[in-house]
Write a protein that binds this DNA or RNA. Structure first.
Lengths: 158, 158
DNA sequence: GCTCGATGAAACAATTTTGTCTCAAATTAA
DNA sequence: TTAATTTGAGACAAAATTGTTTCATCGAGC
């Protein structure tokens, strides 16, 4: 709590005034993370684009929020309350829908399990965010790189 | 500490006898994780195989140790001592060498940054382990799936 | 200037976690 | 069997973390 208070630039007392208790703080962060990613993704107008363009747009929108996404993935299977867990599960189902859309479009290989694709997308989001943070990849290339990695991998085309 | 003791099936007192202090325990787990993965990887005789076969062999060897690998990645940038951090850095350099080997063999696309490839391999190891743990993927398919995802992605070949 | 609400600092209590010690019981080795 | 070693249980102290309260202070708005 004191670390969080310092990072936020407020006193420990003020932190407790806004979030009465450690659990409430964790839940509030979780819900905020969900709200932010939800807002970023639902701002995409998927009516006009192909499923792969949509995937790229999602990566573009969510990779900068990779820390939020990761916080969710970690705490939703641990310290978070039931409310956050169910909200996170709904978010995952959103990714699943996207994967099914790509599968219907014939983009995904039939041998690729949906659950696996969902997990890979999740981990690529965080990996791309990490790569940007540690300076391995330029911010504006990260999403495209993750998207291409998901679709085509890193081997030479031929 | 008490959670670890319970999980290990020993008393808290015994845990303290073997690892005098929290820090020593964390470091011991970290070093053990490195030792195990090192042993698994160095058992592969890479002289007789192509770089992609080697990649698959590494996945086969390390995916079952995904929790060890992940523990390292998390603690090496936090609670671990300098010794563990440097040992982990050496391990990462091992992955980097493998990537460079693939690049020399012309397997990897020239546009794929080495650092990115290393991060993706790391995350795919843990993702594959997670997929097995949650039952999404059969244990004997996980490594091949991760390997194929890394090389070719999940899109339909053509 | 004045009031009101929010903040920071500090003291304080309560709880949790960590670390230590002792002793009886169990296990092992001789 | 006997001796040595290891363990578990529990009491205990020490430290860290969390939660609460008070009070002076700051700043915005009137």
């Amino acid at each position: 709590m004191s670390t969080v208070a310092d990072a936020a630039g407020v006193s420990r007392a003020t932190l407790h005034r806004h979030f009465p208790g450690r659990q409430r703080l964790i839940d509030a962060i979780g819900l905020e993370a969900i709200r932010e990613t939800d807002a970023a993704v639902s701002a995409i107008d998927y009516a006009k684009m192909s499923s792969t363009d949509y995937l790229l747009a999602v990566f573009e929108a969510v990779v900068p929020l990779g820390d939020r996404y990761h916080f969710l993935a970690v705490t939703a299977s641990g310290a978070a309350s039931e409310e956050v867990r169910t909200a996170y599960a709904r978010q995952i189902r959103g990714v699943e829908e996207m994967v099914r859309w790509m599968a219907r479009d014939g983009v995904l290989a039939p041998s690729a399990p949906v659950d696996w694709a969902v997990l890979v997308i999740d981990s690529l989001i965080y990996t791309a965010w990490t790569a940007v943070r540690e300076g391995s990849v330029a911010p504006r290339h990260a999403a495209a790189l993750a998207c291409r990695t998901f679709l085509s991998g890193l081997s030479k085309g031929e």
